[in-house]
Amino acid sequence: MLPKLSTLLLTSLLLIAFEKTYAQKTREPFSGNILYGKVARVIQIEYMSKKPSDTMVMDTALYDRNGILLERRTGARLGKEIVHYIYKYTTKFDDNGHKVETVFYSQGDKGVLKYDLSGNMIEFDNFLSNGNLSYKYLYKYNDRNNRTEYSIYDKKDSLNAQWLYRYNKNDNLIEEYKDKGLKYESKILYQYQSFDEIGNWTRRSRDGKFKIGYPIGEMITERQFVYY
């Protein structure tokens, strides 16, 4: 009996360790993507499928052990140049440990993120360096905490644009539809090519077209993960 008890104990300890390491589930605040496991860093690049050597976006996000975003380092291509930005985030919690608000600064502007009790970002307010509100972004979610709607309002509280989202059974985004606002309405479809051993997707493609028929062009996103 002793060997069996030892085996059961060892199995239990391994399961507990697995739960602590991999069972954590958080979301990227801006994209809404699920992050499985104790993610320390996400390194992401985006490029057009027809020009794989021409990187459009480079992004590195740093998280603490509880899945709270600490910092983002982003490089975006503007013409022939790549412009770099660094964002550092400070998050406040209520007495029960729920996220309440995150504040960050960039190029003199201030961003304030607000959350619901499930930890979903429901509002993002962007303030100019003079303190005036520039834009307000509002988000809605379903009962699985998947983002279903994203709306942009200007400083006069007028709706500028609105996006709707649809997901597969694994809670991965598969369709994005710009429903209102701006000049061109569009529909974008997402497909997933690979995942790591934890379950986080590592390669995704998106393609679509504007409502008037012009293609958007296929974009590839690749991600690498570093875990605690």
Rank of each mutant, 00 (worst) to 15 (best):
D54R: 06
T74D: 09
T55I: 13
L62Y: 08
K88F: 06
G75P: 02
N66V: 12
H84F: 03
E71L: 04
R65T: 12
I86C: 04
D59Y: 09
L62C: 11
I45K: 02
I68Y: 04
T74A: 15
L78C: 12
D59W: 00
S49A: 09
K88T: 12
L70D: 09
R65L: 04
Q44W: 00
D64G: 02
L70N: 06
T74G: 12
K38G: 10
L62P: 14
M48H: 15
T60D: 06
V42C: 01
L62T: 15
E46S: 08
G37F: 02
V42W: 02
M56H: 07
E81M: 13
Y47K: 05
L62E: 12
Y47M: 02
D54W: 07
M56G: 14
A61C: 10
V57T: 14
L78Y: 07
A76K: 11
G67M: 03
K80I: 10
Q44I: 04
K51Y: 14
S53I: 07
A76V: 13
L78I: 12
V39Q: 02
R72A: 06
S49Q: 12
V42Y: 00
I45E: 08
A40Q: 02
R77V: 03
K88V: 10
G67R: 02
T55P: 01
L62S: 15
I45Q: 08
R77Y: 08
I68Q: 07
D64F: 02
M58R: 10
Y87W: 09
K38T: 12
A76E: 15
M56S: 12
R77D: 05
N66M: 15
E46R: 09
E81S: 08
V39S: 06
G75R: 05
D59P: 12
S53D: 10
D54A: 04
Y89F: 08
Y87C: 13
L69D: 05
Y85G: 13
Y47P: 02
K51T: 15
R65I: 14
A76P: 09
Y63S: 09
R65D: 08
R72E: 12
I68A: 12
V39K: 00
V39M: 00
M48K: 13
Y47D: 01
L78V: 15
D54V: 02
E46M: 07
D59A: 13
Y63K: 09
Y87T: 11
D64C: 05
N66D: 15
G79W: 00
D54H: 06
Y63D: 11
S49F: 03
Y89R: 04
V83F: 11
I45V: 07
I86T: 11
K51N: 14
V39R: 00
R65G: 14
Y85E: 14
K88Q: 10
T60Q: 05
L70F: 06
L70Y: 05
I82C: 05
Y63M: 06
T90A: 09
E81D: 10
M48F: 11
G67P: 04
M58T: 14
V42F: 01
Q44M: 06
D64R: 07
E46Y: 05
H84P: 15
R73Q: 13
R65W: 01
S49I: 03
L69E: 01
T55Y: 07
G37K: 00
I43V: 07
R77P: 08
S53T: 07
E46A: 07
D59Q: 12
P52L: 01
K50Y: 11
Y87R: 15
S49E: 10
Y36R: 05
